[in-house]
Write a protein that binds this DNA or RNA. Structure first.
Lengths: 326, 326
DNA sequence: TTGTAAGCGTTATCAA
DNA sequence: TTGATAACGCTTACAA
């Protein structure tokens, strides 16, 4: 493997000047530049990036944390982030926390050991005080989630709005007994706010909320099925349900139909995200502007790496998509 | 940021010995080891991985190529690969080729610039002769795809079987006019073999194949819808269709129903992969052992990095899952 | 406009 | 069992 030294020797020019050509410095005579470029081509030279990293203290690599990449919401985020990162010459390291605090911390060490220039969190498992120390090691940007303690660039949506929008839609369609179903039990701002939106819409309309109608820890399709069976077992059943994801809504829908229920007549369902699945199943859903979030996040990350101050927190909005489950 | 030098100084011991502790070398006095460990803790020391990379010529990083991470087949592969890699202390760099030859080559450069220890290809855009030169730069392992020219560890399924299984199922359910729908048009072994399986099943039973029944370039849900409309426009319509993915099958199903067709009465559909979506929609499908493939692939990769010779190409098998679309 | 020389933080070699 | 010392391949003052 040819090194910068070999190139310099073959071209009869110093290593410094070769490095200058590599880094597009000004002040290199065109003639020598050509000689060097020739030598590089001849030796099939490529700079050794480990050496560059060490010297420049820069990895051109960004870590993206997601719970699991098979969750379509997160894979969509990551898809766009990777494309965006590649445009700016950055690579993405995929970190699946698997909803584990321990895994999350393990991956945060990447920042401390200088394996990445920055970390993007799309979901946060630990309380912020456990993440905070890593802020000194390099830029951390939050996407989707948010935390009041976290004073780092954050790209998120006002989830009060999201919860409100979905619930309001159900109310407008005439449902009165509306259940609420959320993802993680963890007291994140996101979860709290979305629920706040639900309660706001209910109270605003003077509708009662039954404690039994709160369902938590629903993330996957299977979880959705379980939620249905819990609801089915209630004495005071809701007529409609707001869910935190299209997967959960899909599971609910499947289990309901398998039990002979008609949707939306026996139970109306609203999903969240507007994934391809939602269209296929005819799920009414609250659409999140995933691509915009991902793009903004990556841009903030790159700004942060470049030491620029971050722009005001972006605030994008939701859209309700009405299909056949409401 | 503390360096090995600081630790050595604080412990009053040489850098060499500190490095020995770091690398779990034998021959370090327990007493000194403790002193060093203390100093490390006190200084909050972590080794600088850029320096380690440079010195060890090892990155502990593996690149995984997929067309797009939002394709559930590939995200499932990547999920398992990442988990497996993490277990062995490796990180994954996500490379989305976006079905582009150019992108693929760009990412292959990661191997040449020593940014990764190896590359896993889950789909191949370029002809093998364009990939071949990179084999000298580091281990390349193929997963899912395969190529006769490629003499590298390859983990794949016998797609003749897959095509045969799905088609045979349709035949056994009594369909005679069966169409065939495949992903990329590129003449990959995978595509050719799966088609071979289809033709084998048809010929074996003495069934005719109409040239119009071959549909290509179908990857996404949207593609599936298009395929339906092409089929609908045929004079000699098939009664059933074998598709190369659950997404395409889902698109077909949706478009068919939107056009008022009954499935399977007016058109039977077989998918491929057995993704969550397949269960939700009641799609009959050919299940691939994705997790096994991913795990085997990562193990082969790690063996290859360690310079071990690779085991015989693994050969796993398909299962047919019968639901309601056939 | 170019070159010399001094690191960046590790680890491998060799001698003690 | 330990420590000096020389790399690994590159960039960047500084000097010319």
């Amino acid at each position: 493997m040819a090194t910068i030294h070999d190139v310099a020797r073959l071209a009869g020019i110093s290593r410094t000047t070769v490095s200058r050509v590599l880094n597009c410095h000004p002040y290199v005579a065109e003639e020598k530049k050509q000689k060097i470029l020739n030598a590089m081509k001849q030796l099939n030279y490529v700079p050794n990036s480990s050496a560059q990293r060490l010297r420049k203290v820069k990895t051109d690599t960004i870590a993206v944390f997601v719970p699991r990449i098979t969750n379509p919401f997160f894979s969509h985020l990551v898809e766009v982030m990777e494309n965006e990162a590649a445009m700016y010459g950055y690579q993405l390291i995929l970190c699946q926390t698997q909803y584990s605090k321990k895994q999350e911390v393990k991956f945060l060490e990447l920042l401390r050991t200088k394996q990445v220039d920055g970390v993007i969190l799309t979901s946060i498992e630990n309380e912020w005080r456990h993440v905070q120390p890593y802020v000194n090691e390099g830029p951390i940007v939050i996407c989707n989630e948010y935390d009041d303690e976290a004073h780092v660039p954050s790209i998120f949506l006002n989830q009060v709005e999201g919860g409100y929008l979905g619930t309001k839609h159900l109310i407008e369609r005439g449902y009165k007994k509306i259940a609420y179903c959320a993802g993680s039990e963890r007291r994140s701002r996101l979860t709290r706010d979305r629920r706040k939106g639900y309660e706001l819409a209910m109270k605003e309309t003077g509708l009662d909320i039954n404690e039994d109608w709160y369902q938590y820890n629903a993330i996957s399709i299977e979880d959705g099925k379980k939620v249905f069976h819990r609801i089915k077992a209630l004495k005071n059943r809701p007529e409609a349900i707001f869910t935190g994801s299209d997967e959960v809504a899909a599971g609910l829908l499947k289990a309901a139909r398998d039990s002979g229920w008609r949707v939306p007549e026996d139970l109306a369902i609203v999903g969240f995200d507007n994934q391809p699945l939602a269209e296929l199943l005819g799920l009414s859903t609250v659409k999140q502007p995933i691509e915009d979030m991902a793009r903004h996040t990556m841009q903030e990350m790159i700004r942060a790496i470049q030491g620029k101050d971050h722009k005001k927190v972006t605030n994008l909005s939701f859209t309700l998509i009405h299909r056949t489950t409401t």
